[in-house]
Design a protein around this nucleic acid. Structure first.
Length: 606
DNA sequence: CAGAAACGGGG
DNA sequence: GTGTACGTTTCTG
């Protein structure tokens, strides 16, 4: 028996003997330095919830299915206590096999939580948070006995008992960025014809390296004999450096895909992970995400696009936006000329390639803390969080919170339900057409943070929405007059309330802190909570969401319109003439009033 | 004008 | 893989 404390980087499951095996990927401090670890847990079973019409008959009818176990458990459905059946299966893939037939049984009213990916269910049920510290007890397995010995530098252990989440600071992780260049004289690179001519690497621990078949005097250039050797040297460098995070720019769809295609042609495996497996691709809609097992592959392009608002997202533009410096750029269609011409041009191509990899490291160091913090709050893998829309973040946060209080998660809308929802949209925010002209002394009133406040103060939630209500017991929304019970506090209002309170707590700590690093850390944490709170009002309005409610969405925007109009009136009394308003804020010009002591501010927030 | 198709980033 | 993006711009009939 041994105990290890690891930073949980990622999680997946594999199948052994028809049984699922959860794998926790992490890094821990060994005597010789940081080391990768894989922890196996064979003790977790997939399950769904069945809401019966007739509990006893339902239990009987379920015996006709390959279910392992059925438990009757108390849960809540929109706050109302219900007894439901927790139905266990042998394998996660049994769930899609049997769920429709189970849902169609006469004795079954509804099934729930039948589409939560197995590894996500595990994280929620075990109370584990990726990018957090986890203590595990178990026994180690010789690396030579795992995956045919291909995971030789990784510590493998099998879990005995439960993993325990420990309080922890932000983990310090090793980050490696890479970038490839190709020889493509005829338009965009095609992997069936155009070879990889260099791969650049950069790390947050100072690695600077370009692997190429061309010779060069720069000390950062390593010359190898063939394209195959470029790929092999790339793989061995990654394994040697053993980064926890591997980053690229548009690497989900370009770099990794290209490396994979070229390697296939050359007949070699792309082995970059910690478990001896080759590069995998996950379908995410119409596009792919590249997976390196045991490390977290982050495509920085996706992260940047989520958190920065720009009209274009080229690496050069993003770099300029963040650091205010130009980055040398070689146009894509000229790279082959620089390569062919050699000499000084080849030198600058090497520099440009390394520059790109280093820019990715620099941008990543700036952008990743926020995503990492969101990971630690939402509790889903860093890999997933870095690719999630904010709406999904909120949804997975709510799913975890629902589990914590024993509330059943609403189902995802079916295709027909979804198109129905899309048909009728809640009225949007208030819009006042802008007044023509060039205005000075402009004041902006920001209302975005008001939406979460409306949800809390008016208790806007699916579980508090009622058809009728005694005088004084309900909040009544403007216009449509939707009714929300004042008590008890609804699920979503309580979650948002906690987020906002936690943010206030962090901000207070931030203002009291003196250590510069601690202040920065607290700032990232409170920013992450602000982001989460501000995207939470959307849960009711987005047609794909489990917590969608036209009534709630309509009530929030109605109260919002009410507030913005009242505030504009009030602002006018103080000499601010509104010139333009849209949904979550309005612009006003300070015109002044006689004998007013007020001076215009450049910004005021709601 | 509405609905379909393309586009983004990458070389 | 307990799965199938997304929001916006441009094209086409």
């Amino acid at each position: 028996m041994e105990t290890k404390t690891l930073v949980l980087l990622d999680i997946d499951y594999v199948t052994e003997d028809n049984k699922p095996v959860i794998r926790l990927f992490g890094t821990f401090m060994a005597e010789e330095g940081p080391k990768s670890i894989i922890v196996l847990d064979r003790g977790f079973q997939p399950y769904i919830y069945v809401i019966p019409r007739d509990l006893e008959r339902c239990q009987e009818e379920l015996e006709g299915f390959e279910v392992v176990q059925v438990q009757s458990v108390p849960r809540k459905d929109l706050g109302r206590p219900v007894n439901v059946l927790k139905v266990f299966f042998n394998h996660p893939q049994d769930v899609p096999r049997f769920r429709d037939d189970i849902a169609n049984l006469d004795s079954v009213h509804e099934i729930r939580e039948y589409d939560l990916p197995f590894y996500r269910r595990y994280l929620i049920d075990k109370g584990l948070f990726p990018m957090g510290k986890v203590e595990v007890k178990g026994h180690s397995i010789p690396a030579s006995e795992y995956q045919g010995g291909h995971a030789e530098n990784t510590h493998i252990m099998e879990l005995d008992g439960e993993p325990v989440l420990l309080e922890s600071d932000f983990p310090e992780l090793k980050i490696l960025s890479f970038d490839i260049e190709t020889y493509n004289p005829k338009g965009m690179p095609r992997p069936e014809e155009d070879p990889i001519i260099m791969i650049s690497l950069s790390s947050n621990e100072g690695l600077r390296k370009v692997i190429s078949t061309a010779k060069c005097d720069f000390d950062f250039v390593e010359t190898v004999a063939s394209e195959e050797d470029i790929l092999k040297e790339f793989m061995s460098t990654v394994k040697e450096e053993n980064p926890n995070i591997i980053m690229g720019y548009n690497s989900d769809n370009f770099d990794f895909n290209y490396i994979n295609e070229r390697a296939k042609r050359l007949g070699i495996a792309v082995d970059l992970g910690t478990d001896g497996s080759s590069l995998k691709f996950m379908r995410r809609g119409f596009t792919n995400a590249a997976l390196v097992k045991g490390r977290v592959h982050i495509d920085l392009y996706l992260v940047v696009r989520r958190y920065m608002s720009m009209d274009r997202y080229t690496l050069e533009r993003v770099y300029w936006e963040l650091f205010g410096e130009d980055k040398e750029d070689i146009p894509g269609d000229e790279i082959c000329d620089y390569w062919d011409n050699g000499g000084l041009q080849l030198d600058s191509l090497f520099k440009y390639s390394l520059d790109d990899a280093e820019a990715v490291t620099k941008i990543g160091e700036k952008m990743l803390p926020l995503t990492m913090e969101l990971t630690r709050i939402v509790g889903q893998p860093f890999f997933d969080v870095a690719r999630m829309a904010t709406g999904q973040l909120v949804e997975w946060y709510l799913i975890r919170k629902a589990y914590e209080i024993g509330e059943l998660v609403p189902n995802k809308p079916s295709a027909t339900e979804h198109s129905n929802r899309r048909g009728k949209r809640a009225a949007g925010g208030y819009v006042k057409d802008p007044e023509k002209g060039l205005h000075e002394n402009i004041v902006y009133f920001d209302f975005r943070s008001l939406y979460p406040s409306i949800i809390i103060s008016k208790n806007v939630s699916l579980d508090t929405l009622v058809e009728e209500c005694e005088e004084g017991n309900c909040h009544v929304s403007p216009e449509a007059g939707h009714l929300f019970l004042k008590k008890p506090q609804g699920f979503v209002p309580s979650v948002i309330g906690n987020v906002l309170r936690e943010r206030v707590r962090l901000k207070t700590m931030m203002h009291q802190a003196t250590d510069e690093r601690e202040i920065q850390l607290l700032n990232v944490q409170q920013e992450a909570l602000k982001r989460l709170a501000n995207s939470m009002y959307g849960v009711y309005g987005f047609s794909r969401f489990r917590w969608y409610s036209l009534e709630c969405a309509d009530a929030i925007t109605a109260w919002g319109r009410d507030y913005i109009k009242k505030t504009m009136k009030k602002a006018e009394k103080f000499g601010f003439k509104p010139i333009y308003a849209d949904t979550d804020g309005f612009y006003a010009v300070y015109e002044g009033i006689d004998d007013s002591p007020l001076e215009p501010d450049n910004e005021m927030s709601g």
